[in-house]
Design a protein around this nucleic acid. Structure first.
Length: 468
RNA sequence: GGCGUCGUGGCGGAGUGGUUACGCAGAGGUCUGCAAAACCUUUUAUGCCAGUUCAAUUCUGGUCGGCGCCUCCA
């Protein structure tokens, strides 16, 4: 069974799904006001690894990945330009246009990285009614108060507020760097509904029982989670930075109303760093998918790079290691291409692929998603498998092995096609030339294949081709 | 100030109380008509100081240092 680190208990725990064959998963999605950088993508690939593993275990994940398309405040200070508005201003468009464009870009990006399709990708703006309803229920239960700029959640009314993140609320207050609205009762209180200023007309604003305005950031996740997955879910995922604020607030909102645990397991992914610093726009070190391609690397190499570190460690991004990942990926593609070159379609080799699938892939993944270990295991057996394929007959089992890797890691090893009949013919002609010691003709044919992206290595068992 | 996390060889990055992680890069070599991203070998790795132990990179304490969060952030 799957064991995962649970932030709730700070321990590795066994997943025990609430339903027999279904696992509910909520992952905090992007705010769609700009292009996601590779750090953002790392996180979504990691969510995908969890989803893929659940499927591999024959469980049915019900996965909600929300799209935050409501602008939220750039800062908690009163000056409330929101991120969507900032994006809109920058590009001379409306907040709605910005949200639409970057939502689509994000969804396309999921495909480019071969990330599984979530069961639901609800947008915050499509659930304003549900959010208002939740706030009303919190209001009825006496968890809210109203000040000049909005409706706030009174965190002092939720006794377990500090538990999840082990917060020392008083000490936190001492170190804060921003100006709070002085009307707030507690420093940790947060907005459920923000009022539009009477003087301004926002691109995104709605009528509510408390007046014209827009929802706070945290309430959207609670509203969509409750709507699509219910009061208690199996796994709630998010970036590590959400522990003290966003997820703490989600728990406060939902559990205050339901009286039940919001999630059984909280899984948090760590960040990647560049040159020892986090990735952020203000530091000017963001890298986009397009930048990866501009440097001549494939998007799948980036996916490989994600797999090379554990989701809970703060890993380091370097171009040198994107190259290393690309090389490693290529080597696996070459291995996969041997499926077109096996001696026979029968199964009689000495390798127990079922065992490899279990020990090399499934087992380390079930142990808190240890992808580096999986890659190490695969690499360790690569030479043996490679040699076995050209000397023995084990194609059906080998195909199962490749499928297992693709299912769990999403590297698309099975995507490449066989080489063409013409190319195969060139290989036959070259070998005929070699038999006749016609080395010039032989090399000419090899060069021709090379131009078409096909390399050759001559072995005792014949010429093996591989793609560049 | 509070909370958290990490410190492994040129780079990245796992596991482990006593035996090779793994990948990339570098070096040497083998096979080959020549080649090959093929094969083999290889380079003072576990921040520092104590403690526990027959034995610690792995446990405990301390210390130094990095990073993250506490403000929107994956």
């Amino acid at each position: 069974m799957l064991r995962l680190h649970n932030t709730l208990t700070r321990k590795i725990e066994t997943l025990e799904p609430l339903k027999r064959s279904e696992v509910s998963v909520y992952t905090c999605g992007p705010t769609v006001y700009d292009y996601p950088h590779i750090g953002n993508w790392f996180t979504f690939v990691r969510y995908d690894l969890l989803i893929r593993l659940l499927k591999h275990m024959n469980l049915k994940p019900v996965w909600v990945l929300n799209i935050t398309d409501v602008g939220h405040l750039v800062s908690d200070a009163d000056e409330g330009d929101d991120k969507l508005q900032v994006g809109a201003k920058r590009e001379g468009k409306t907040a709605w246009e910005i949200a639409k464009y970057y939502s689509q870009y994000f969804l396309d990006g999921l495909d480019r990285l071969n990330i599984s399709k979530p069961t639901y990708t609800p947008k915050a703006t499509d659930h304003i009614g549900e959010q208002i309803d939740l706030i009303q229920r919190l209001e009825s239960a006496d968890y809210t108060y109203i000040i000049d700029d909005g409706v706030y959640y009174d965190t002092s009314k939720f006794s377990k507020y500090a538990d999840f993140a082990n917060l020392d609320v008083d000490e936190q207050q001492a170190g804060v760097r921003v100006e709070f609205n002085p009307q707030k009762k507690n420093s940790t209180d947060f907005a459920l509904w923000k009022f539009s200023k009477a003087s301004e007309k926002r691109d995104m604003e709605w009528e509510s029982p408390w007046g014209r305005g827009f929802p706070g950031w945290h309430i959207e996740c609670s509203a969509m989670l409750l709507k699509y997955l219910g009061k208690t879910i199996d796994i709630h995922c998010g970036g590590i930075e959400h522990i003290p604020v966003h997820h703490t607030n989600e728990i406060a909102q939902a559990e205050a109303l339901t009286g039940k645990p919001l999630a059984k397991i909280w899984m948090h992914t760590n960040h990647i760093s560049i040159d020892g610093q986090k990735i952020s726009k203000s530091l000017g070190n963001t890298i986009l998918l397009e930048d990866v391609e501009k440097r001549g690397f494939s998007i799948m190499a980036l996916r490989m790079l994600v797999l090379e570190s554990h989701y809970r460690t703060q890993s380091k991004f370097t171009w040198e290691n994107v190259k290393a990942a690309e090389t490693r990926l290529r080597s696996l593609y070459n291995l996969a291409e041997l499926r077109w070159q096996t001696v026979s379609d029968n199964d009689s080799g000495p390798i127990n692929y079922e065992e490899y699938i279990h020990l090399d892939i499934t087992k380390p993944l079930l142990d808190d998603l240890n992808t580096p270990k999986v890659l190490a295991n695969i690499s360790q057996h690569e030479s043996l498998i490679s040699e076995n394929l050209v000397t023995h007959k084990s194609k059906p089992s080998f195909l199962k092995y490749l499928s297992a890797i693709d299912d769990c890691l999403g590297l698309d090893l099975m995507k490449q096609h066989d080489i063409s009949l013409e190319q195969k013919d060139l290989i036959i002609k070259r070998n005929a030339a070699r038999v006749d010691n016609k080395w010039a003709a032989s090399d000419r044919l090899r060069d021709q294949l090379k131009e078409e992206g096909v390399g050759l290595r001559d072995t005792n068992y014949g010429s093996i081709w591989y793609r560049y």
